[in-house]
Write a protein that binds this DNA or RNA. Structure first.
Length: 517
RNA sequence: GACCGGGUAGCUCAGUCGGUAGAGCAUCGGCCUUUUAAGCCGUUGGUCGUGGGUUCGAGUCCCACCCCGGUCACCA
């Protein structure tokens, strides 16, 4: 049949032909009602019924019968008895196909079943000699098969023991990764639950979920390089959004009191274990709030999510090799520390920020004490403060910390502190050594906002365009408001201990490979 | 974008000083009705990331490029 007699795909295609010609079955299956997930099937096992049946097989068989389906992960053939391990999203369950218990064609089908095939088995639940709960395939009265093929797998499967390890293949072929590595499926489901709980939490508090443009004529709301795309009919370039902020604020202007959006942002920048070009962001705005409103909200939200999804406020990160070993514990117990950036820097370095730039001696001392950190300290006093914070302090903030009184120059969309115009009235929440969430007392003075924008345009080589319509909206009038953003991917990393953002995004961006990968 | 590490059978990995390309599992053929990475006997499978170069001879040395991971830069 094939020129490569031991090519795995060719072997499987031969079997495909046999299934059609000899077995007269559809190798790709049909609608099949009544299948229960493997964990539910396992839970139906009845110890007493099993014992009774083993004691006296002639009595009425009261063992629960289940119909299950899964991908074949292991296939052990012992002459006239075949054991298989099936896997679905809920877990694994063993199936046994005995020559005596099923029609001969179905036994032959079980014999030529390959690793990776999706099969259906029906029969009573009983333990094996070694105590493993097993579905013993057996024909029922209803005309259902005891054992059937649901979908022939043609591609070579990953190894049954090591699975798929190569990170490149895991990210490119996530559909294999998901079934070959159960912890990947588990993490994907954790992420889904985390986002569900965030939505529920916000809805319970009266926030309405809205959708704002992903394609924008002017990409505003953050300092980042955008992706460019093109609309043919209008013949205009558009940008994929870097933030939804300016549109969510327009909704406050229009009269929505509390809105949020959970969706993708796109930033045309480097890729790292903490950065994917598209990432999922929550932004929420509350009229008549401030950064403190939002800090309280995010604190409660993260704790609620942690408790509902993980049942604890103590998040343990484990070694990737030795999963017994706890490498880090994050304590989410409230209240979370609230402390100014200058105070944190002083604690860490002894530098008491007084708005004066560091002296040459201070710079040398800092560099000497922190070799390998590549401190860039040639800017203004405010820039130095931010640089020292980001390089030396933020990575050490494992437990949640609201960093307040951030130099205003880097934050154009927030109000200034009422007692000091040099600082912005905001928080930056750091957990696990990463910035996970910013929160602002939102700037609603249109003239001051315009001043900030014009100041930005002046010194930016990229000539960021000003969203004049947003300024017009502020002139119409936006109530004072609190706003917050939260990086969902990083939150999931923090809660699950995933070391890379690629582990919490099902399909992280990869450079295309030849051959359609 | 810079630097470091990696790319060898379907999977997981060895490959010494430059001297015929290896193992386990998977595949394929046999045996086996309670296995647990089943076992036993046999079998097959390679563009050593790609392209050049050095050499009698390159998986191994040199150059360029591709892809992945990490660190840094940019950024959240």
């Amino acid at each position: 049949m094939s020129e490569h007699p031991h090519d795995i795909e060719a072997d499987r295609r031969n079997k495909l032909t046999r299934l059609r010609d000899e077995f007269k079955i559809d190798p790709f299956g049909q609608r099949t009602p009544g299948i229960v997930p493997l964990d539910q099937a396992r839970a139906k096992y009845d110890e007493q019924a099993d014992a009774d049946h083993k004691a006296d097989p002639t009595q009425q068989d009261r063992r629960p019968v289940v119909k299950v389906s899964g991908r074949v992960m292991q296939h052990r053939e012992m002459g006239n008895l075949i054991f298989m391990s099936l896997r679905d999203a809920s877990g694994d369950l063993q199936v046994a196909v005995s020559k005596k218990a099923v029609p001969i064609e179905q036994f032959k089908l079980a014999k030529i079943t390959d690793l990776g095939d999706i099969v259906i088995a029906q029969g009573p639940l009983a333990k094996t000699k070694t105590g493993e709960i097993t579905v013993w395939a057996a024909a029922s009265g209803g005309g259902d098969s005891a054992y059937a093929m649901a979908c022939k797998s043609l591609a070579p499967p990953p190894g049954k023991w090591h699975g798929l390890q190569d990170p490149e293949q895991r990210y490119r072929k996530r559909y294999i990764d998901l079934y070959a590595n159960p912890q990947v499926m588990d993490l994907a489901q954790k992420r889904i639950r985390i986002i569900d709980e965030i939505r529920g939490f916000l809805r319970e508090r009266g926030y309405l979920e809205v959708e704002t443009p992903m394609m924008q004529a002017i990409a505003g709301g953050a300092a980042a390089r955008p992706f460019i795309t093109h609309h043919n009919a209008l013949d205009i370039d558009l940008y994929l959004r870097i933030a939804p902020e300016l549109y969510l604020k327009r909704l406050l202007v229009g009269g929505f009191p509390k809105v949020f959006e959970i969706n993708r942002n796109f930033r045309n920048e480097g890729i790292s274990p903490r950065h994917n070009p598209e990432f999922t962001m929550l932004e929420a705005y509350e009229a008549f709030g401030s950064w403190e409103t939002m800090a309280g909200m995010v604190e409660e939200m993260v704790c609620t999510v942690a408790e509902r999804v993980f049942g604890t406020l103590e998040i343990n990160h484990r070694d990737t090799e030795d999963t017994e070993k706890i490498t880090k514990t994050i304590n989410l117990k409230r209240p979370w520390r609230r402390v100014s950036m200058a105070e944190l820097v002083a604690e860490r370095t002894g530098w008491k920020f007084d708005k004066q730039p560091l002296s040459a001696q201070q710079i040398d001392a800092l560099r000497d004490a922190n070799k390998g950190k590549d401190l860039k300290l040639d800017g203004t006093a405010a820039e130095q403060l931010v640089e020292v914070y980001e390089k030396l302090v933020e990575p050490t903030l494992i437990d949640p910390t609201f960093v307040t009184r951030v130099p205003g120059v880097i934050i154009p969309l927030a109000k200034r502190c009422s007692d000091d115009n040099d600082f912005a009235d905001v928080y930056e929440l750091a957990i696990n050594g990463q910035e996970i969430s910013p929160g602002y007392s939102e700037l609603n003075d249109p003239d001051e906002q315009e001043k900030h924008f014009r100041g930005q345009v002046g010194d930016s080589e990229e000539q960021q365009k000003i969203d004049e319509d947003f300024l017009e909206a502020l002139r119409v009038g936006m109530p004072p408001a609190g706003g917050m953003g939260l990086g969902i991917d990083r939150l999931v990393m923090m809660l699950t201990g995933a070391p890379s953002i690629r582990d919490v995004i099902l399909f992280p961006l990869m450079r295309p490979r030849g051959g359609g990968d």
